[in-house]
Design a protein around this nucleic acid. Sequence first.
DNA 1: GTCTATATACAGATAGAC
DNA 2: GTCTATCTGTATATAGAC
Lengths: 184, 184
Amino acid sequence: MSEKRQKLEAAARKRVQRAGLHGLSFRTLADEIGIKSSSVHYYFPEKSDLARVLIERYHEEFFTALHDIASKRWKLKRKLSAFIAIFEAVEARNELCLCGMLALEAEQLDADNIALLGKFFTETEAWLVSLFKEHKAELKTTIAPSVLAMSLLSGLEGALLVDRTLSSRARVKAQKSWIHSLLA
Amino acid sequence: MSEKRQKLEAAARKRVQRAGLHGLSFRTLADEIGIKSSSVHYYFPEKSDLARVLIERYHEEFFTALHDIASKRWKLKRKLSAFIAIFEAVEARNELCLCGMLALEAEQLDADNIALLGKFFTETEAWLVSLFKEHKAELKTTIAPSVLAMSLLSGLEGALLVDRTLSSRARVKAQKSWIHSLLA
DNA sequence: GTCTATATACAGATAGAC
DNA sequence: GTCTATCTGTATATAGAC
């Protein structure tokens, strides 16, 4: 992948995680990289092409991190902390989850991209479910793993959103202390 | 309040809860009501004025519902179900929480409106905290009421967002079953 | 690959007549 | 209160030269 393309993707992603897809324009994106907007169209013919690439790349990187965590010989508590740390890092950069942001803009996205978002969420939940099942002995709760997985992911996505309006990090922290209270 | 003004607010609110503030234009809003966009400016000089009114009205109605719930002689479980039902109703209309939607668009809002969003979230959490304290005996958990409150609200906001990409209602349901598992 | 130039559409907002 | 008309800005996208 060319250097320009990489710079474009990085700048676009940061902008989307802060201001949403509609908050990203080809003009300002081009300005930031030092080219003209018509040149951005050379790399991404339409805006939906750019959105698709951003989601796919985010998905890739996110699951690379998840696989890293899963491969470690750690206790459940530490693995979950590492998972939550991904969201803490996003929050520390004053950003939102790319897929969470785009989910809110679903009305403006095409069906393909919405499907990619759905895939991101269900696969993340599936990863959590397998984690909970693998470490079943370390969980002291009767809540079903799938409910736990959905609640944790929803909670983190919502926590980023609420915290943002208050310049706080308390809600992501709350998610962490809630989930930790269920561990042996 | 005039009838036109009321119609405008209702239509604007529905549109924002589906497509966000940027997905609402004075032109299409005017078309829907049967007036011209310049007439919309008569009621709401700038778009931020409309946003402010929408947040304030949503806040009002939301807390009217909360006060109704709090005044009932119900068990905690039933009160929490009624609270969650507010979000289920939003989801059933294929909408998002108005404040959750605007939180994602925070970058485009002015400071006053962001403050109103923060107020909505903290007051809702405070309401939940007082509810948990009032019904302390019905709670079988060591999790602090404030953590519980933040987790539940974040969870519901995030659940609406994730469910939307999957045309599902499973995540709001998961929030309900998670919180119910903590009740005596 | 990148540019200039432009087509086209739509946004928020205002002036001034009625 | 509502209109017509318009200003101004910005967006996506494309054509065609270099």
